[in-house]
């Protein structure tokens, strides 16, 4: 089955890296095909930024996301631009501290994950994307937590393993808790 995931935020949040981690978890650490594409502006920091991942057991012809099953939103701009792009009954993860102006559409499973706050509490805002990925793994089960953790460890600088593992674990725990409260969503 083909799954489409759209991740969006601003430059510096590790959006493109998140897409890479997710697609690597599927492609290298699970027996699936995955393609990651990206879109970004001229700014290294602060510009809008989008990463798209397609995961499938079969061949992936069209590598772009057309009708996303999962959307992860980490900025106000990303929310306005992409919340409505999720497919009907699709799963949307929102960082509520980054998105204050809300107008959640109906027919979506929306999960609020305060990833930036959790990351700050752990020690570094920069791992908010890994917190979000932890929650995404718990909520969508699109890859196993082991596969995702392996992909995280492969994509981070030496010396930051503990920080990133903690970020993943906390995100995963938060996501599991949300599923218990809100009901889960299988891909």
């Amino acid at each position: 089955m083909r799954m489409e995931i759209r991740l969006a935020g601003f430059g510096g949040q590790g959006i493109i890296r998140s897409g890479l981690i997710l697609s690597m978890a599927a492609c290298i650490y699970s027996d699936k095909n995955a393609v990651q594409t990206q879109s970004y502006g001229p700014e290294s920091r602060g510009g809008s930024c989008k990463s798209e991942v397609v995961i499938s057991e079969g061949d992936i012809d069209f590598p772009k996301v057309d009708d996303p099953d999962i959307v992860m939103l980490m900025s106000q701009e990303a929310y306005h631009k992409y919340v409505n792009t999720a497919k009907k009954n699709g799963t949307v993860l929102v960082d509520p501290h980054m998105v204050q102006d809300r107008n959640d559409p109906p027919n979506l499973k929306i999960y609020d994950v305060p990833a930036t706050k959790i990351a700050k509490d752990i020690g570094k805002v920069i791992v908010a994307n890994v917190v979000m990925l932890g929650a995404l793994t718990a909520i969508t089960k699109i890859v196993t937590p082991e596969a995702l953790k392996n992909a995280v460890l492969r994509n981070i600088p030496k010396g930051s393993e503990d920080l990133n593992t903690a970020a993943f674990e906390q995100g995963y725990a938060y996501g599991s808790e949300l599923v218990r409260k809100q009901g889960k969503t299988e891909p």
Partner: peptide
């Protein structure tokens, strides 16, 4: 650009 920046196996 898409092919250049796209990640795949």
């Amino acid at each position: 650009e898409i092919i250049g920046h796209m990640w795949e196996r």
